[in-house]
Design a protein around this nucleic acid. Structure first.
Lengths: 148, 148
DNA sequence: GATAGACCTTCCCATCATGGGAAGGTCAAG
DNA sequence: CTTGACCTTCCCATGATGGGAAGGTCTATC
């Protein structure tokens, strides 16, 4: 199997397969005589594992650990569960930050008549809200999440 | 006021103030004889506006539009509200994606005894879950959101 | 005045996961 | 033997942010 077939079979793009190889998440693929990467069923299995973990929001670093645990027949399930729980906690934090933002925005938007008149409580809030404390517990400060 | 004071007064770091100037989100600051950027109260006001919008998760592009509307005395509040509502919708999509992930993860984790035994339904799922359809309606596929 | 230290400047690099695209090699079908 | 689909490597871009180096400026203290 060439990389294109492997990509289709696993749901991981060719680009990402090469990238994962480059950063050491997966072992270097075997090569054909012409230096084409070749993949066996076991490799596809690994790529699907990665795809699944990625879909669940795990970082490459976490996937490295999970793959290592997967390949370790004697691993403790507690180790895996700990990573999962930590990740859940992180996702919950992100969800809370988003919920805080949408709550504020919904409030502001509901007070904005949203017609041709220039009067707008949303802009008024942006212009006059006092500067937030620099490091709130659950920070509402964060970059644009690429959850698109 | 120098950039450091402006940063403290606005809650936007010096680095980001320079960056916002560079990408044209804010006008180039006036300069002292020694080429130091100087800031007036009106500039701080603008920076706080930006800080507030950023805290509510707006992208730089959206902030550009919001700033333009803010400076346009005759703008229609409907234009502002539309941006806010679109942003709310996007945040809701992200929240839904996160909720889907946590639901799955919580389910898997609850079935994992999490002790010294190697048997682990989390890894079993990762290894055997069928590849997802490539483009689900509310995609669970996304990069790591930097909502830290 | 001189010097120390806090500030400022520009410039480059890193993040994280992902894709785009160029230049060139390979393979299979017609 | 050509065409087109594939593969290779290499470089660049994203978005918002920070780190840090090399060098200039300002201010307070001796």
């Amino acid at each position: 199997m060439n990389i294109g077939q492997a990509a289709k079979a696993s749901g991981v793009s060719s680009k990402m397969i090469r990238y994962y190889e480059q950063i050491g998440l997966i072992a270097p693929a075997h090569r054909s005589e012409a230096q084409y990467r070749t993949y066996e069923d076991a490799d596809i299995h690994t790529l699907r594992f990665i795809r699944r973990a990625r879909d669940l929001g795990f970082s490459v670093e976490q996937m490295k650990t999970l793959l290592a645990l997967w390949h370790d027949r004697g691993r403790a399930s507690g180790d895996v569960k700990a990573i999962a729980l930590e990740h859940i906690a992180e996702l919950d934090r992100k969800a809370a930050a988003i919920a805080a933002m949408t709550a504020t925005l919904r409030h502001l938007a509901s007070n904005c008549h949203g017609d041709d008149r220039p009067d707008c409580p949303i802009l008024a809030d942006f212009a006059d809200a006092p500067p937030e404390a620099d490091l709130p517990e659950v920070s509402a400060r964060f970059g644009r999440a690429n959850l698109g």
